[in-house]
Design a protein around this nucleic acid. Structure first.
Ligand code: FES
Ligand code: FES
Lengths: 141, 141
DNA sequence: ACATACCTGACTAAAATGGTCAAGTTTAGA
DNA sequence: TCTAAACTTGACCATTTTAGTCAGGTATGT
C-alpha cells in the first residue's frame, strides 16, 4: 500500500499555498521552487483542484492560485478525491453481489478490507488543511 | 493507495488454511480451487510465509501446509511483513535527516504522512487471524 | 507589446504488478 | 518399486500504473 506522488504533492502544494495566500495569489512557479515539485506536474494537479473548486485561478501577470474555501473546510478527503487518489482495498466491485474471485458470493476477506478502507478514510475525513497549518506556522514575508 | 493482490491473497489463503487445518495439512491446490487464486502464484506467497515461520510445510503426497502458530498470534502485520506488503506513505528515507525534496529539512507534510502510516499500521497490529475466523465460522467437512 | 502565468493534451521512460512457465525434489501409497 | 501428489526454486514476461516531460497554446497586468 503506498501513497502516490500525485496525492502527496497535492497536499504539499495546498499547504504551501495556504500559508502564502493571505494577500496575493500564489504562482505555481513559486510553489514549484519552494517545494521542489515539477512545474508541469503541478499544472496537471492544479487543473484538477480547480475543477473541484478547491482553488481559484487568476490569470495574467501577477496571477496565480487562491484557495476557494476556508482551510478548515478543505479536508484531505476533498483533496484526494479531486486528484483521483483513491483508497482501494477490495478487489471486487462494491455494488456487485459477486466476489473478487468471480464466485456468486463475497470472498472471506471482503469485510476485512472494507473495514480497512473505512479506517483509512476516517483519517482523511478528519484532517483539514487548517490542522496542517497549525503544525507548520510561519510568519509571512 | 491500494492494497496489492499479494497481500490480499496471503490473508485470504491463510484464513482458508486456518479453517481447514485442524487435522490434515492443506494443499495449495485446494486453496487455489476454493479461493480462485492461481496455484503458481500461491506457491510464491507460501514460500515467503514459510520463511517467516507463519506456516510449516509437509512434502509428498497428502502433504500441504499447516499453521505454525495459533491463529491468535498471527497478526495481519506479520502476514504483510512476510510477503513484503508494506505501508509506505512518506517519500523520504525515514532514517535520513533530509526531506523528500532533497532539502536539508523534512518537508511540510512529512509529519502528516507519518501519522497516517501509524494509523494504518495500528489496524494491522490489532487484527489477528483469529478475529477473521470468528467472522467466517464454518463447520469442518 | 511583452513577460508572466495559467491552460491543455499528447507523449513516454521506468517501475510495479500480477502473474506464467519450466524444471526440479520429496514422500505416501498402490 | 513405481507413480502421482504436492512442495521448491528461479527465471521470465505482458500489462498497467506512475511520474513525470514536452509542446504548444491563451489571458492579462504593466
Ligand atoms: S474483496 Fe470483495 S469479494 Fe473479495
Ligand atoms: S515525506 Fe518525508 S520529507 Fe517529505
Amino acid at each position: 500500500m503506498k501513497l502516490t506522488s500525485k496525492g502527496r504533492y497535492a497536499v504539499m502544494a495546498l499547504v504551501d499555498l495556504a500559508r502564502f495566500d493571505n494577500i496575493n495569489p500564489v504562482s505555481l512557479r513559486d510553489i514549484s521552487l519552494r517545494q521542489g515539485i515539477s512545474l508541469d506536474y503541478l499544472e496537471q494537479i492544479f487543473s484538477k483542484l480547480k475543477k473541484n473548486e478547491i482553488v481559484k485561478s487568476i490569470r495574467g501577470t501577477q496571477g496565480g492560485y487562491v484557495l476557494n474555501k476556508s482551510p478548515n473546510d478543505i479536508k484531505l478527503t476533498n483533496i484526494f478525491h479531486a486528484v483521483d487518489e483513491k483508497v482501494k482495498t477490495v478487489q471486487c466491485k462494491k455494488e456487485s453481489k459477486k466476489g473478487c474471485n468471480g464466485k456468486a458470493t463475497k470472498c472471506i476477506t471482503h469485510n476485512l478490507w472494507d473495514e480497512l478502507e473505512i479506517h483509512i478514510n476516517t483519517f482523511f475525513e478528519n484532517k483539514s488543511l487548517k490542522d496542517l497549518l497549525n503544525n507548520n506556522k510561519e510568519t509571512r514575508v
